[in-house]
């Protein structure tokens, strides 16, 4: 069964130098079980092909029903060096919510 991430989670993203942080929060415990199991660092890295050029770190915050991803080498140099319209990665949480997860 395919689940759209946007149907079970929300989130927020921002910048940390040239890395972006993408926090994904499940709406309920069931949703958190799904993202905890299926939303791996590898899947996120693959999803951001052509956007994230570095490692993806993944952290769990079960207390917030959330995962935090750090996408290294993503913001075109970061800060005021970046030429990107979205130099701070503000829209990357929404970009991750485009993902569909195959749940067995």
């Amino acid at each position: 069964m395919k689940i759209k991430l946007i149907d079970i989670a929300h989130g927020r993203s921002g910048d940390k130098g040239d890395a972006a942080n993408v926090g994904i929060i499940a709406y309920d415990n069931n949703g958190f079980e799904i993202i905890q199991k299926y939303l791996t660092a590898e899947k996120v890295k693959r999803h951001f092909t052509g956007i994230c050029f570095g490692e993806v770190e993944r952290y769990e915050l079960p207390n917030l029903k959330a995962l935090n991803f750090i996408l290294h080498n993503t913001l075109g140099g970061g800060g005021t060096v970046s030429l990107k319209l979205d130099a701070q990665g503000k829209t990357l949480a929404a970009a991750l919510l485009r993902m569909e997860i195959e749940v067995s």
């Binding site: 929300h10 927020r12 921002g14 942080n21 929060i25 770190e57 029903k65």
Partner: peptide, 16 residues
């Protein structure tokens, strides 16, 4: 809880 949680996750690294 949702609006506050989003801000808690804003621009953090290792949450611990």
């Amino acid at each position: 809880v949702e609006t506050v949680s989003e801000q808690l996750l804003y621009e953090i690294g290792n949450p611990q």
